[in-house]
Write a protein that binds this DNA or RNA. Structure first.
Lengths: 158, 158
DNA sequence: GCATACTAGTTTCATATGAAACTATCTAGC
DNA sequence: GCTAGATAGTTTCATATGAAACTAGTATGC
């Protein structure tokens, strides 16, 4: 009648531990070989996919703090990996765009990132990979939908 | 022939985002209601399960930095939630033990934590929950086994 | 038994983080 | 067209983090 609770089996703990492991391990690849931080890597990926995004959009789509985006952009700009233009419609907005150097850098990193991912998932069967995909999607959906409500509770209580 | 890489579908990104969401949301429960941090919560859980652990064992089993453990212990001790004894075999080692107050506090939090977990998983079918369990175990196993190798590479390169 | 190398836990310090204030710009209502 | 309130992005500042140095104690080899 002991063992009501075991940290080792507690999902939030397991998720945190695994996510940290993944992040540290993969971030090492970007950093060692390309001297790129995680926020910078996300920015490269987002801008490669959708050029001319604003910093705000990057923050939202890359799950990053706007302060972190601001700082990461400075670093990328200094290295000539991206350029900013002031938006024609709204002078507050930065229109961001990878330079050809930035594009090439991203295209060097991306295959390594995908290799890393493939290697990480190689212990799973194809069925399990499909299941993981579906499960993550459901949990993400759930998380997204409850986020606003929790914010309200948060500000109401604390 | 675009879209070789989409951040939104990249597993490390998805894991990081989901884990952060979980952590922030759940940590709010401990903190608001009980003024307990995540490391403190892990320590309470581990000591409840296995009394008389050392700080080092807690760091390893709770996936925490030893500095963080040291600091979290001070907070718990000050609140009278745990006591330390100097180990009889080795005077460097702290033998840690929850007080009855600490035990009661843990036993107040645990059901809420489990409720939170159940609520979080309620969008999954029983089959999916089983699959998630199995998948996580495999990935954890894989992560654990490659960790030492990566450390070697790390120190060799950087 | 004493010098050397090691380990548990703490402290220090330099860096990372993000909340809040700030600047520049925009929008809405008058 | 001007004022009040909002928003994009930056800067400041106070806190969180963890690597490395430190302290106290242990183990080993001679």
């Amino acid at each position: 009648m002991k063992a009501l609770f075991q940290l080792e089996k507690f999902l939030p703990y397991r998720f945190d531990r695994l996510a940290k492991h993944i992040s540290v391990s993969l971030a090492g690849v970007y950093r060692r070989r390309f001297n790129v931080t995680v926020p910078q890597w996300r920015i490269l990926a987002l801008l490669h996919e959708t050029p001319h995004m604003s910093a705000k959009d990057i923050a939202r789509q890359g799950n990053l703090d706007k302060v972190m985006v601001s700082r990461a952009l400075v670093g990328l700009e200094e290295r000539g990996l991206l350029e900013r233009y002031i938006s024609a419609e709204d002078a507050r907005v930065n229109e961001l765009c990878l330079t050809s150097t930035g594009t090439r850098l991203f295209e060097s990193i991306a295959p390594l990132a995908l290799d890393w991912e493939a290697d990480f998932l190689k212990v799973l069967t194809p069925q399990e990979r499909g299941a993981l995909e579906r499960i993550l999607s459901k949990l993400e959906q759930h998380a997204k939908s409850e986020a606003p409500a929790l914010t309200v509770i948060e500000s109401a209580i604390s």
